[in-house]
Amino acid sequence: MVLVFAEATNGKFKKAAHEVVTYGAKTAAALGTECVALTLGDVTDAGDLGRFGASKVYNLSAPELATFDGSVYTAAIAGAARQLGAKVIILLHNSTGKNLVGRLAARLDAGSVPGANAIPSTDGGFSVRKSVFSGKAIADVSINTDYKVISLSGNSIPVEESGSAVSVESISVDLPAAKTKVLETKRAEGITPLPEAELVVSGGRGLKGPENWGVIQDLADALGATTACSRPVADVGWRPHHEHVGQTGVAIRPNLYIAAGISGAIQHLAGVNSSKTIVVINKDPEAPFFKAADYGVVADLFDVLPRLTEAIKAHKAG
């Protein structure tokens, strides 16, 4: 059996949860088994996960699960897996997942693949592909243990509906006391966080200064995109640090990445080269970013961005 941990934010599921359930259902199909989903804490509409292929949805509610603690969540997920007889455990490779994959693997003495981006292959064993060396290679990793733990990179597979809503059963597991105490959680309201964004508009040193960011913001607003930046821009404080993408910043794989005034250094590419479509706007035709781009515009970004924004608005207006 495949067990998918579907994480809810403030009680609701985002697209990423639908992705990971879709992934779990396809993995279960490849193994000839069923996929069940596990939700923790108070969630609305958990049964809806059935639409993405979960044959059953289990909910574990306990006061200890109200805020995140790695050891409590691990006990909950591993406990549920043992109780249900699930051998493959799948979660998202987001901040929660990164705190859990290692713990689950250690607890279950399992082989793990963090950051997988394709459905596992089951011919001749069990292996999962992930991108390594900053996207410069793909590794097919075999898991050699009975229990298997996989975390799925966001935006790696399309969400697919393959069923209908199911009823939700509760489950109970003994939970330990939390080892961490959450004092405060702060999230920017209203904008899609970078790792989850499908459309991203990003600016680099070519913008010349923070006062010029309006051209980036206007395009992002017209598209409904999230904004990002190169590292030097965050280092000098033109933009907040959570916008910095690349090897030392956030790694993203949106459907569309528009980069303006960014040269395309290897460390920048490391965080963005899994984007499905890349548009580069740079006045230097020799900028290395053009080699990684699908579409390029060789021009002054201050001329091009407002024009692109207008064209997007016209397109949206139909």
Binding site: F68, N94, S95, T96, T180, K181, V182, L183, E184, T185, K186, R187, A188, I191, T192, P193, L194, P195, E196, H242
Partner: peptide, 9 residues
């Protein structure tokens, strides 16, 4: 965390 921070003790 995604789109923000969490402060823990």
């Amino acid at each position: 965390i995604e789109g923000g921070i969490e402060i823990v003790e």
